[in-house]
Structure formats: structure tokens, C-alpha cells
Nucleic acid binder design. Structure first.
Lengths: 217, 217
DNA sequence: ACCTTACCCGACCGATCGATCGGTCGACAA
DNA sequence: TTGTCGACCGATCGATCGGTCGGGTAAGGT
């Protein structure tokens, strides 16, 4: 299927992903996407039936790329700690490989969706894909608690921390590079990020977690 | 100055903050804000000269609340580690006290601003306030490195982690509560978040940082 | 030769956007 | 009573939104 010259549909998708990631769903008009794709506005509606459908197609592509990394990691065997580490590595690799995906994902998770978007027929599949990956991680955590490898802990908080630290890291790439003067996408930065997240996990999950900060209240 | 019945201007500001935080600048129309405030659309323009000005007023209010907590913490004396800890506590307290502020701030940091917004006269002051707080934290980090308390480290990465973990924690409150079934704003959750961030800081900043995860590459 | 299919375009539609207009109302002062 | 003011409103503006329509062009099958 893949063609050497990118087809119009693929061109539209990549352009739309970059625009939606930066300015959000309501912030990008159809005509803007069309112009950036080198097409007329009406030509867009030949490939996608509506703006909401276009956005969902972009998001499904992002999810597919992430799943292609995360799902294999979910199925690899090992201790709960190893499995969780593999998933974290896969997620970080997927986000580092495609930084705009992180922005889109961050928006999808913390932003109230546009009414037109939640009414789209693809919305259910998007929710299912997201829930599938979340459930996969939750299953690892629960298995770890059941086998005694992990101590019982506030799983929501921990997921927030993981998602927050990793996704936000890549989502704010421009901010980090412009204001702070360093690349967040270099191999060294990605490797450091993996270690940081795993340190966070150890401190939060391991039964004999050493406390490096005094406990209060 | 404060009146027992909230003035129209304050009512508009609080309503607009909630709406902008959830749906973004382009996602909220003037008529929506007016209707939610119990006013006619044209009455909004009596209090604010433009939509961009209204958004900036909301954002400046958020920044003022955060500054009222963070700036005193920046001026307290102590070791670099203590000062950094105070700032982190102040930031977390400010965000926990006003969760919608976190959403607005997250959006402001990682989202490309609308052209109408960057052209607003208040934009310069907003940037200055943000840069002021960032510079204050950076100064603490640099002083710590100069005095040998902190090891030289990728400050951008570290700031990303802190901002990501804290801001995202509160920005995605609804997500956490609805999908994962726990409150992120309870006193216990806030205290746990403070410890997590400080653990992260210790691991990233201290010269004798113990590594709990094997180093790679 | 003809028809189909895919792809693309300019012109256009109703709805909504941010913003402006002229004007109403009550409070207060002279 | 008259004048002035801030607060507020309905009606309306031009621009833009997402989306439709009919027509055009090139390729391929028969």
C-alpha cells in the first residue's frame, strides 16, 4: 500500500496532526489544513466526511503508532517490575519518536472534548483503545500487588505521575528548547527520562521503598 | 473594595476561567461566557475591551494567585535544597487550592498561543510574570550548583519533570477522578505529591544520588 | 468511441464568530 | 426637573466557520 510519493490522504493526515497538536481542535480551521496540504478546501471533504472525522483519523493513527510499541511490551513475560519497565520504555520510545503525538495525547486526556467530537462515530473506538492500554497497565499493577512485588499504593496518583512526567516531557518540547535551551529528544535525554520514571516507580511501588524525604502528617 | 455580592466583573472572570480552562481560548465563545455570567453578550464588552483582553485578565489573576504563594517562598533564606523545597511546596499548594489554574497554566505553557492573544497589550506582562518565576527557580538551581550542593545536571529536563508531574497532576483532576476513581485534591494526595517531587529532585540534583535503577548506554 | 471512477476545484450556503451600534434603565447630583 | 453617568440590552455588522454543490480533468476498462 505505501506509495513513494505520499498520497493526498497521508499528506492531509500529517499536516492536520501537526496543526491540531499545536492549536487544538477548535483552533484549526478546515481551510487552514487544506491550504497547508496544497489542496482546495472542498477536496478535503472528498477524503474525510467531516472535520470531526478527520481529527479522529489523526488520533487513531497516533494511537496505532503507540499501540504498535506498547502492546508487544504488555505481552512480554517477566516480573511485574520488568513488565512495567518494558511498557514505560515502549511508551517513552513511541512519544520520543513522534513528539507531536505526545501533544495530541496530552490534549485528549486533560481537555474537555468538543461536542462534535464526542458525537463522532469513531469516538467510541478511540475511547476503547485508550482504555485498553490503561487497563493493560492497571492489570500489571494489580498483579504486582497480588503477588506481593508491589505494595498497595494509590494507583491513580502513580499513573498520573507516570503520564504527567513522560507525556508532558515531550509535549512541551518547543517550550523546553526555546526557554531552557536544550533538546528533549536527544538519545541521552530520552535515556535519562527512562531512568527518572523508573526511579519514581521504585520509590512509589516497592515495599521496602527507601524514603529519601522526611515523611509528614 | 470587596463587595459581598460579587461584582459583574468578578463573576465574568470566574466563569470565564472555568470555561477557558476546560475548552481553551478558541473553544469558548463570548456568548457562552455571557450566558453563563447571566449577562447579555454586549455587556461583556462594557467590562472588557475584547475577548483577548478578557482571557489575559483571567490569566493575570491566576498568575497573581500563584505569585502570592511562590514569590515569598523564593525570598526565604536557607540552603539551596531547602529553598527549592519551599518553592515546590508553594507551587503545589497554589495549584491544589485552585485546580482550574493548573489547567490554564498547562495550556499557556505547552500550547501555541492564538495570534490575537500574542498581539494583546497584556501579553508582554504575562510573559514577564512567567519568566520572573522561572528565573527565580533557575537562580536557585544555579546557586546550588555554584556552591556544590547540587551536581551539574540537565536543568531543562529537571524543570520539565517538576512542572510535568505537578501541573499535570492537578490539571487532569477530572480524568483522574472519573477514570481512576480517586481524588487528587485531598490533603493526603497533595502531601504525597510533595514527597514524590522532592524525591525526584533529590535523585536528580544531589551529588551522591543513589541510583536505584541500572544505568544504561 | 464511451462510460466509470477518482480526484480536485470555485462558488456558494446557513450558522456562528467577535465586535459595534444606538438606545434603555436606574442612581445620583444640581 | 434636568443632566450625567455606568450598567446593560437587542439588533446588527463583516468575517469566518464547517459543509455542500455542480462542474471539470485525467486515467482506465470495455
Amino acid at each position: 500500500m505505501p506509495q513513494v510519493p505520499p498520497s493526498s490522504r497521508e499528506k492531509i493526515l500529517s499536516v492536520a496532526e501537526a496543526l491540531f497538536a499545536r492549536r487544538g481542535y477548535t483552533g484549526v480551521g478546515i481551510s487552514t489544513v487544506a491550504e497547508a496540504s496544497g489542496l482546495g478546501k472542498s477536496s478535503l471533504f472528498h477524503h474525510f466526511p467531516s472535520k470531526a472525522s478527520l481529527y479522529c483519523a489523526v488520533l487513531l493513527g497516533v494511537l496505532a503508532r503507540i499501540e504498535s510499541r506498547v502492546l508487544p511490551a504488555l505481552e512480554k513475560s517477566g516480573t511485574s517490575e520488568q513488565k512495567l519497565g518494558n511498557v514505560v520504555d515502549a511508551l517513552i520510545d513511541a512519544l520520543a519518536e513522534h513528539p507531536t503525538s505526545a501533544r495530541l495525547l496530552l490534549r485528549e486526556v486533560f481537555e474537555e472534548p468538543d461536542p462534535a467530537l464526542s458525537a463522532a462515530p469513531e469516538a467510541a473506538e478511540i475511547d476503547a483503545r485508550l482504555a485498553g492500554m490503561i487497563d493493560g497497565v492497571a492489570a500489571i499493577l494489580e498483579a504486582g500487588v497480588a503477588s506481593g512485588q508491589f505494595r498497595k499504593v494509590g494507583i491513580p496518583d502513580l499513573l498520573q505521575t507516570i503520564i504527567g512526567a513522560t507525556v508532558y516531557h515531550f509535549a512541551s518540547g518547543d517550550f523546553g528548547e526555546k526557554l531552557l535551551g536544550a533538546s528533549l529528544f536527544s538519545a541521552a535525554a530520552v535515556a535519562r527520562r527512562k531512568r527518572e520514571v523508573k526511579t519514581l516507580l521504585s520509590n512509589g511501588l516497592m515495599p521496602e521503598a527507601r524514603r529519601s524525604v522526611a515523611e509528614e502528617s
